[in-house]
Amino acid sequence: MGFKLLSKLLVYLTASIMAIASPLAFSVDSSGEYPTVSEIPVGEVRLYQIADGVWSHIATQSFDGAVYPSNGLIVRDGDELLLIDTAWGAKNTAALLAEIEKQIGLPVTRAVSTHFHDDRVGGVDVLRAAGVATYASPSTRRLAEVEGNEIPTHSLEGLSSSGDAVRFGPVELFYPGAAHSTDNLIVYVPSASVLYGGCAIYELSRTSAGNVADADLAEWPTSIERIQQHYPEAQFVIPGHGLPGGLDLLKHTTNVVKAHTNRSVVE
């Protein structure tokens, strides 16, 4: 069995187990497998329904001669939608809004960016022009300005110390501490036991640490421990890039980060 097929099978099995364990909360999309990078042309966006009122959005972007996937989250909030992270750029984010209108038909009224990198804030200006209120932590807003990236308009308070959590509509926002970046936030959907790890969490097929220019490698494993301790009931975990899975993604990420750190020390 090929690795790609095995990865998709694991996603399907995880979703099936969740649907059985929580039949009222989960209505997993039966329309197909989780979209992969090879299936999404740059400039297009796919939506994948995880649970009743919960979707991931998947886009792709060219970077350094390669094409990478990027995940975000959409959560229903009454007759409105909360968006977590842009679709990595203005063109993708405009396509995301169009796809949401086509498939869901509810307005996106608020959006949260989970850290300051372009795959999370690139497209904020498109959201703002569409009347979406954009939010991020003060740290993310400051770092985005320093980096020359787009800056969300509103500040999220109460997320300055490791372990801080605040309720934001249908989700809980959690600051686990520094990891992929010093400002990275985690998003949890309690009604569906869905954990969105953003770039602080890796997919299972990833074996290298990737972009760690703004990471705190020493603190990252401790931050992941905080996530595990705060959300032990999480059933569906979405990484910032690639295929979702279960809580095993947290341990896998820790292993990859520690291996990278150990290699760096040896070198």
Rank of each mutant, 00 (worst) to 15 (best):
residue 1 M to I: 06
residue 78 G to T: 08
residue 188 Y to F: 11
residue 264 S to D: 13
residue 133 A to D: 14
residue 128 R to Y: 10
residue 55 W to T: 00
residue 166 V to Y: 08
residue 258 K to G: 11
residue 61 Q to S: 09
residue 158 G to Y: 05
residue 225 E to K: 12
residue 171 V to T: 05
residue 2 G to C: 10
residue 65 G to Q: 10
residue 180 H to V: 00
residue 248 D to V: 08
residue 219 E to Q: 10
residue 103 Q to P: 06
residue 120 R to V: 01
residue 227 I to A: 05
residue 253 T to Q: 00
residue 251 K to Q: 15
residue 67 V to N: 15
residue 27 S to Q: 14
residue 113 S to K: 02
residue 106 L to D: 08
residue 7 S to E: 10
residue 24 L to A: 12
residue 79 D to L: 09
residue 72 G to R: 02
residue 187 V to G: 02
residue 65 G to A: 10
residue 74 I to K: 01
residue 75 V to C: 03
residue 212 V to C: 05
residue 125 D to H: 10
residue 232 P to S: 10
residue 221 P to I: 11
residue 8 K to M: 14
residue 5 L to P: 12
residue 233 E to Q: 13
residue 109 T to S: 13
residue 221 P to N: 08
residue 45 V to L: 05
residue 171 V to K: 00
residue 162 S to V: 11
residue 8 K to R: 10
residue 201 I to G: 01
residue 39 E to Q: 12
residue 173 L to Y: 05
residue 200 A to N: 02
residue 250 L to M: 07
residue 31 S to D: 10
residue 171 V to I: 10
residue 175 Y to C: 04
residue 38 S to K: 07
residue 2 G to Y: 15
residue 169 G to Y: 05
residue 200 A to H: 04
residue 227 I to F: 05
residue 114 T to H: 02
residue 20 I to R: 07
residue 213 A to S: 12
residue 108 V to D: 02
residue 88 W to P: 00
residue 198 G to Y: 05
residue 124 V to I: 10
residue 19 A to F: 15
residue 29 D to A: 12
residue 49 Q to F: 10
residue 202 Y to V: 15
residue 23 P to W: 13
residue 204 L to N: 10
residue 223 S to T: 11
residue 94 A to V: 14
residue 87 A to G: 04
residue 59 A to Q: 15
residue 116 F to S: 06
residue 225 E to V: 11
residue 103 Q to L: 14
residue 164 D to T: 11
residue 102 K to M: 13
residue 7 S to K: 11
residue 212 V to Y: 06
residue 129 A to F: 08
residue 223 S to N: 01
residue 229 Q to S: 14
residue 245 G to H: 02
residue 165 A to T: 13
residue 208 S to P: 08
residue 267 E to Q: 12
residue 59 A to V: 15
residue 63 F to L: 13
residue 56 S to P: 09
residue 198 G to M: 04
residue 216 D to T: 08
residue 91 K to T: 14
residue 94 A to E: 14
residue 89 G to W: 02
residue 167 R to A: 12
residue 258 K to M: 12
residue 176 P to I: 01
residue 85 D to L: 00
residue 150 E to V: 04
residue 99 E to I: 12
residue 207 T to R: 12
residue 58 I to C: 04
residue 52 D to E: 13
residue 165 A to L: 15
residue 266 V to K: 14
residue 160 S to T: 13
residue 34 Y to G: 08
residue 106 L to K: 12
residue 38 S to E: 11
residue 133 A to S: 11
residue 248 D to S: 11
residue 144 A to Y: 04
residue 71 N to Q: 05
residue 259 A to W: 09
residue 58 I to E: 05
residue 259 A to I: 10
residue 15 A to F: 15
residue 116 F to D: 03
residue 31 S to H: 08
residue 4 K to M: 12
residue 79 D to E: 12
residue 141 R to E: 02
residue 56 S to Y: 13
residue 107 P to F: 06
residue 32 G to W: 10
residue 115 H to T: 01
residue 245 G to I: 02
residue 235 Q to R: 11
residue 245 G to A: 05
residue 194 V to N: 02
residue 131 G to E: 07
residue 225 E to F: 11
residue 233 E to G: 12
residue 55 W to Q: 01
residue 19 A to Q: 15
residue 79 D to N: 13
residue 197 G to F: 02
residue 236 F to G: 04
residue 183 D to M: 01
residue 43 G to Y: 07
residue 104 I to G: 00
residue 137 S to N: 07
residue 256 V to Q: 03
residue 58 I to A: 05
residue 191 S to P: 07
residue 242 G to L: 03
residue 234 A to C: 03
residue 15 A to C: 14
residue 23 P to Y: 11
residue 179 A to P: 04
residue 48 Y to T: 09
residue 51 A to H: 07
residue 35 P to F: 08
residue 94 A to L: 15
residue 115 H to L: 04
residue 261 T to G: 12
residue 81 L to C: 04
residue 12 Y to S: 10
residue 152 P to A: 04
residue 91 K to R: 15
residue 35 P to C: 04
residue 45 V to M: 04
